[in-house]
Amino acid sequence: MKQVLTMTALLLTGTAVAGGGSAVPTGNSIAAIVANDPNFSTLLSAVQAAGLTQELASGGPYTVFAPTNAAFAKVPQAQLNALLNDREQLRAVLLYHVVPGKVTSGQVVNLDSATTANGADLDIMTNGGKVMINDATVTKADVQASNGVVHVIDTVLLP
């Protein structure tokens, strides 16, 4: 589990540098996609609040269901604040957005569930041509990364 945590940290936040800061990843990794897209700034902040920014790893492939800033805005402020102040719960939520392996949209439509990096299952269904992950709609699929794939979702997944 620690190895998955470590890998997830790198995927979502990039590489730590001397002095405690974090570098903006370059290239086409999942880390670079998330760190370089302003629509994921809340996701990036959540990862930092979970204390995952200093963890280093490499590997993959991974599938990340990445909630946008608008998805985080749907979470009631009090609930979001409580989550951001509970490091273990926040880590569990973040790992709930990561599925080991590369699962493209063509594969997702043939699944009814997937096991996440935190060990819990996500429900997957297709409804009216839209892919649903639990209560979240995939708004952009198959953002290809060198170490997996990102699917953008409109709702934060809560285990």
Rank of each mutant, 00 (worst) to 15 (best):
L5W: 13
L5K: 14
A9N: 00
L10D: 15
T13D: 03
G14K: 02
A16N: 09
A16K: 13
V17T: 07
G21V: 07
P25S: 09
G27P: 09
N28G: 06
S29E: 03
I30S: 01
V34A: 10
V34L: 07
V34E: 04
N36P: 07
S41W: 04
L44W: 01
A46D: 10
A46C: 11
V47T: 02
V47L: 00
Q48F: 02
A49I: 02
L52P: 03
L52I: 06
T53M: 12
T53E: 14
Q54G: 14
L56H: 14
A57E: 01
A66M: 07
P67A: 05
N69W: 12
A70V: 10
A71P: 05
F72P: 03
Q77F: 13
Q77V: 09
L80W: 13
A82N: 15
L84Y: 15
N85Q: 10
Q89P: 00
L90W: 10
L94I: 00
Y96M: 02
P100G: 00
P100S: 05
G101K: 11
V108M: 14
V108P: 04
S113M: 09
A114K: 04
T116S: 01
G119N: 03
L122A: 08
D123N: 15
D123H: 14
M125P: 01
M125L: 10
T126K: 13
T126N: 09
N127E: 13
G129C: 03
I133K: 12
T137S: 04
H151I: 06
I153F: 09
I153L: 01
D154T: 06
D154F: 10
T155L: 06
